[in-house]
């Protein structure tokens, strides 16, 4: 019984943090949850949905089938369950059938955003990223506040090496969530990859902002170091001085972080020794 409580708690945690821990979820499902479905209370159906998606992700079709059947008997004609059915077809790469179900859902309920998103995911799975981008921009014209969609669009643009457009999407995300250091870091990453003196200057500012929001962001520290070394190559004396100061500071900070974790030098020597075969 105690075990069950722990498992439910970890399932809830993964759900809230949106972790993609499909294999772990399936393990919990097989060890405890499956036999204790009636003891879950209010959470029963949410857990079923979570387990279903995890099962599809790990190709455990038996588990997924059982979840969908249970959900279907509890909520006949539910659109949310039909979306899961569409995913079922997706797993077997029967995209035509999945599309057909999703089209029907959209016909029935034209405001259903989940079905529209699945359609875009299918395009992505088929490798039609240009079409996916087109669909997603059309989708964002209707649902402008959908953070997930902006994020996905930025990823799709990055795959196409459209840095400017991807950066725009991340800007949109920063507006929605200005306190998230990861978004600032991401924006800086994109600007840095884009290259050019001006962009690297912007990247440096955003890395600094990310560090300000979360001083433990080691990637941002490295970013500050890299962008700082880039901007220190300039004729402007004042700028040069500022940048090299920043570089010095970031190197010191990085060293400080590593000295806390373990003594880096001994570890480094061991690794180098391992390399010399």
């Amino acid at each position: 019984m105690f075990n069950l409580k722990d498992d439910i708690e970890s399932l809830r945690l993964w759900r809230e943090n949106i972790d993609r821990k499909s294999r772990e979820i399936i393990k919990l499902w097989q060890s405890t949850i499956e036999d204790n479905l009636e003891n879950l209370g209010n959470e029963k159906f949410v857990v079923l949905e979570q387990a279903c998606v995890a099962a599809l992700d790990t190709y455990e079709l038996n588990v997924a089938k059982r979840c969908i059947q249970l959900l279907n008997s509890a909520f006949p004609n539910s659109i949310r369950v039909r979306t899961l059915e569409a995913m079922w077809f997706e797993v077997d790469e029967k995209y035509e059938e999945a599309m057909h179900i999703l089209e029907n859902i959209i016909k029935q309920d034209s405001t259903n955003s989940a079905a529209r998103k699945r359609k875009i995911a299918i395009l992505k799975a088929q490798g039609k990223s240009i079409e996916a981008i087109k669909e997603l921009t059309d989708y964002l014209k209707i649902y402008m506040a959908d953070i997930e969609a902006w994020q996905e669009l930025s990823e799709l643009y990055l795959n196409e090496n459209e840095f400017n457009k991807a950066a725009f999407c991340v800007e949109e995300l920063i507006i929605h969530n200005p306190h998230n250091h990861l978004l600032h870091q991401r924006y800086a990453d994109i600007k840095y990859s884009q290259g050019g003196q001006e962009n690297i200057e912007i990247a440096k500012n955003y890395y600094c902002q990310a560090l300000k929001l979360n001083p433990n962001n080691i990637r941002a520290l490295y970013g500050v170091y890299l962008t700082g070394t880039h901007t220190s190559i300039t004729k402007n004396a004042q700028k040069k001085k500022d940048s090299s100061k920043l570089v010095e500071w970031s190197v010191k900070e990085i060293e400080k972080r590593y000295s806390k974790v373990s003594s880096p030098l001994s570890d480094l020597e061991e690794r180098l020794a391992a390399l010399e075969v």
Binding site: N17, I18, E93, A121, A125, E155, L182
Partner: peptide
């Protein structure tokens, strides 16, 4: 930003509504 400090980009970029299932994870099943 306190709640976000322990999270990494890898978990943050994970978007469940756009999951695709045609990945190599299948082969382990």
């Amino acid at each position: 930003s306190a709640e976000l400090e322990s999270r990494s980009w890898e978990t943050f970029r994970n978007v469940p509504s756009f999951y695709t299932y045609s990945h190599r994870g299948k082969a382990f099943s």
